[in-house]
Design a protein around this nucleic acid. Structure first.
Length: 205
DNA sequence: GTCCAGGGCCGTT
DNA sequence: AACGGCCATGGA
């Protein structure tokens, strides 16, 4: 079955998607939601989403749920930042990663929204230069926070590709190119499809 | 108690 | 280029 057919099949099974996946799939997001998604993309690395929500709760309580505040706290009192994000696991690494990301945005662009005013390739290249942000995290930020048309490959996507024999090469770049080549280049479709692949992957083998 | 969850980096071969 | 160890918490 073609990739586009598989998309339609999932859409029929789970769609039409609204904000069924956190609200990551929503198009019009305010700056706060955008930043939350970018931060969440780092926090959820190899970690259950429920743990990330505990972190959001901690940050919220301290009025620290923003890129600017995390940059300030991380620079002044790293131990405090580590403590706030502890539930997400790997908390020392992630505190460093979060700080580096926030520092990059604040110092070079002021806000995440201004960073995203550049084109996709420019944004992607810069994100990948930040230590701790690899292809999946970068693309999640670009697609779900930045409204950029780039398809996210993760463990669920790989399993999905294997299950449906979409490819024999499961490298990040190859799979990404394959999905993008066989789908309309639309942010909404990339978002909804990836979200549904995860939902479908969680629902069963 | 055991298993595992939207990775990525840094060594060793 | 490919692979293994490492990082750590909380819920099922």
């Amino acid at each position: 079955m073609t990739i586009y057919r598989l998309y339609l099949k999932l859409l029929k099974k789970y769609g039409p998607p609204k904000d069924f996946w956190k609200n990551w799939c929503k198009s019009k997001k305010n700056s706060r939601e955008q930043e939350k998604i970018a931060l969440g993309a780092i926090l959820t690395q190899r970690t259950n989403w429920l743990n990330v929500e505990l972190v959001f709760k901690n940050l919220q309580k301290e009025k620290a749920l923003s890129i600017k505040r995390i940059y300030q706290i991380g620079g002044r009192d790293r131990a405090r930042l580590e403590n706030l994000i502890r539930p997400s696991g790997f908390y020392k690494q992630k505190a460093k990663r979060l700080f580096q990301f926030c520092q990059f945005i604040v110092k070079n662009y002021g806000t995440l929204r201004d960073f995203f005013k550049q084109d996709l390739e420019a944004c992607r290249e810069q994100l990948l230069e930040i230590s701790g942000i690899g292809p999946e995290t970068a693309d999640s930020i670009l697609l779900y926070a930045g409204d950029k048309p780039i398809f996210v490959i993760d463990e669920y996507t790989r399993r999905f590709a294997k299950k449906h024999s979409i490819s024999s090469d499961f490298s990040y770049h190859h799979l990404q190119a394959l999905f993008q080549k066989n789908l309309p280049q639309e942010v909404k479709i990339y978002r909804d499809f990836h979200a549904m692949i995860v939902i479908d992957g969680k629902s069963g083998p």
